[in-house]
């Protein structure tokens, strides 16, 4: 299965300034009661949005945004893939932040949403720009690992190997993993617990 090549994302950005935004806030648990991801974008930050009249997600100036700027430890807590799925289905194609929670980052990679890491100062600048001039069009260049607007170019860190996978369109790992199935059998045969220790280890 070949995946989409991801090289460049251009568009407006939604700023989410706070740190430690957990996946319960991104997609509250009651919206997980579905056997598909269809429509999950409606749950995106829905409780917060209900209680915050000027929530950035609802700000008409950010409408149609294709990226999100976030703080530290974004996506902490629950492993629910519903969170990155909701972001992606809402139209967010890339996130730039100071740091990301481990499982969330794995989920984003698995569904082809690049994450760029920038310094706290640079992210602060991006967030401020998106807040103060929401019509700003930002450009994320995966190959050169930058995010830019106007004349300003900010370096971002995208894990080199993941970057290559996005550029080559090989980020869907399933085909890679399946290609190694014979070796999987070999590893399984070496691990004594796979037979519950019924046979001597090889």
């Amino acid at each position: 299965m070949s995946a989409k090549r991801i090289e460049k994302i251009v568009g407006k950005a939604i700023p989410i300034p706070r740190d430690d935004i957990d996946t319960d806030r991104i997609t509250p648990a009651r919206f997980l009661k579905s056997i598909t991801f269809e429509g999950i974008e409606k749950a995106l930050f829905c409780d917060e949005r209900e209680n915050t009249p000027d929530h950035p997600v609802d700000n008409p100036a950010h409408k149609g945004a294709s990226m999100m700027f976030v703080g530290k430890n974004f996506g902490s807590g629950s492993s629910r893939e519903h969170a990155p799925q909701a972001l992606k289905r809402f139209g967010i194609e890339v996130l730039i932040g100071v740091s990301f929670a481990e499982i969330f980052a794995g989920n984003c990679f698995a569904i082809g949403v690049p994450l760029g890491v920038a310094s706290a100062d640079d992210v602060h600048e991006l967030i401020k720009q998106a807040q103060e001039e929401p019509e700003t069009r930002f450009s994320v260049d995966i190959r050169n690992a930058t995010v830019s607007f106007g004349e300003r170019v900010i370096p971002i860190d995208i894990q080199e190997t993941r970057k290559n996978a996005f550029l080559a369109g090989t980020w869907d790992m399933l085909a890679n993993l399946r290609g190694n199935l014979p070796r999987v059998e070999e590893v399984a045969a070496r691990l004594p617990y796979v037979t519950n220790f019924e046979s001597e280890a090889q």
């Binding site: 997980l32 009661k33 056997i35 598909t36 991801f37 492993s79 629910r80 893939e81 990679f109 894990q159 080199e160 190997t161 993941r162 290559n164 996978a165 090989t170 980020w171 790992m173 890679n176 993993l177 190694n180 070796r183 999987v184 590893v187 399984a188 070496r190 691990l191 617990y193 796979v194």
Partner: peptide, 29 residues
């Protein structure tokens, strides 16, 4: 080390999983 199947082009390691526990919320898709 004992569970590594391969080094992937993504830079990640392919790791054998000895036990997979599944439940109703995160499996239908």
């Amino acid at each position: 080390d004992s569970h590594t199947v391969a080094k992937l082009d993504s830079g990640q390691d392919q790791i054998f999983i000895g036990l997979h526990l599944i439940h109703e919320v995160t499996t239908p898709q």
